[in-house]
Design a protein around this nucleic acid. Structure first.
Lengths: 241, 241
DNA sequence: CGGTCTCTTGAGCAGAGTCAATGAACGTGG
DNA sequence: CCACGTTCATTGACTCTGCTCAAGAGACCG
């Protein structure tokens, strides 16, 4: 029998978090889902919607965002390939935020009821999804700290460190360099600064030889220095959980 | 047979989130736990620790907090009675933050392995705990927005609105008034401001007749006005989920 | 009654925002 | 291949919200 490569990708992700049995794998293989391509900046989820599917990001980047009544935007997380992007919809009916594609992206939209069923009845799958969700929550907490208590240089540096680590883990590399598919305005929305100030901070970081930039390609030149200057401690990513 | 009032409280909480069967209740009634009183400002959980218990807050207030290397503190959530305060420890080994008591508090510390077992094998209990955790994550997201994109007046007002709603729900009241057991310094740590500025903001809100204060008793005088001024929309609390 | 912790208030400062203009990169159609 | 329009990045000048420093007043406690 031919295996569906998309479901196998999802299985690998879940298996990386918990010991899944052959029956667990079989159960995942029967999940109803549909694959979809998303154009940059289009919405995957809108605040107030009641989605019946739960997306898994296969390729591309997304971000999670909320708007204030003043029209200001705050990005509350950035999603990279290989992540479940709305586990919330498994158990909460209404979305409390928006999710948009940053680049062209591919997602597998899994039937929420079916995935919820697996999460509740198959302990290994349940545990894996719990871990995914709880690490996500931990990252939210760190972002509150970032935006609430760090100065502009550390905020931007911290975000770059986080992305470097998460991308290196996801790609099984140790590059500390990556293509950052965000405008400076979006970066500002992620760290609570204006685009003008993000620009000044980025060049200040480059001037201090902590990073180098070429278009939107970011290389961290001095990891230890940037990590220290940005108060970055990867504990909150629970890499060894 | 005599029922343990503490476990019954926990059962009621879980039952408010999902339809639990009599077997589910029986299973909860056999959870190993110990009750403990906590003095103000003492720690329930420390960053880096590997707790084997998961606390449920029976009375009193707690806050969740992280420190930067500069020594700045950011409070990332405030916990009120009736909440599970570290569901993270069910599935993540190491704590990424500190939890401290705000007032004298009572907690039931439940054996994490036993509760995890229930979460994974009893669908109703699992669903209830998922909902608890996901609402917590939603509140983290809103706090990122609060600290990242709102001005000082809105930030403080937003926090007061959130606490008023959560406490009214928990106590089944509609007072819009509550005792806020926090110093202005702690308030500042929750909204990313200095205590001096929190002080000015609080008196400005009082001067605009949005709130009144007597010691640490807060009354919201004009709910609609404060809600609008603070950009508060309770959707993120998922009250009807 | 003294000590300590909070709360208040004022004065001056500075980090980040605003406004505005210029320049570079990129996609598109001719 | 080039002209053009759009989006994004960069820079300067100026402003302002919120911070720092510091001192005094209340509240609470043993």
């Amino acid at each position: 029998m031919q295996l569906d490569p998309i479901l196998e990708t999802i299985i690998r992700r879940i298996a990386s978090r918990a010991r899944v049995s052959e029956e667990d794998r079989t159960a995942i293989r029967s999940l109803p889902y549909s694959a979809r391509a998303i154009e940059p900046s289009s919405y995957l989820v809108r605040e107030g919607a009641q989605p019946s599917r739960c997306a898994f990001l296969l390729s591309g980047f997304c971000y999670r965002q909320k708007l204030t009544s003043e029209g200001a935007r705050q990005i509350v997380s950035i999603e990279i390939p290989g992540e479940f992007i709305d586990l919330h919809h498994l158990f909460l009916t209404e979305s409390d935020h928006n999710v948009q594609a940053l680049t062209r992206a591919h997602v597998a939209e899994i039937d929420a009821a079916a995935l919820r069923e697996l999460a509740l009845t198959r302990p290994a799958i349940g545990a894996a999804l719990w871990i995914e969700a709880l690490i996500g929550a931990s990252i939210f907490r760190e972002w509150i700290v970032n935006v609430g208590r760090r100065d502009a240089h550390s905020r931007v540096g911290h975000l770059l460190c986080e992305l470097a680590v998460r991308l290196d883990i996801a790609n099984d590399t140790t590059n500390r360099a990556f293509d950052l598919p965000m405008t400076q305005e979006q970066l500002g929305d992620a760290v609570g600064l204006t685009p003008v100030h993000v620009n000044r901070v980025l060049r200040a970081l480059a001037a201090r030889n902590l990073i180098s930039r070429d278009r939107r390609q970011i290389s961290i030149l001095d990891w230890d220095a940037l990590r220290d200057a940005s108060d970055f401690n990867p504990r909150y990513l629970h890499l060894t959980a």
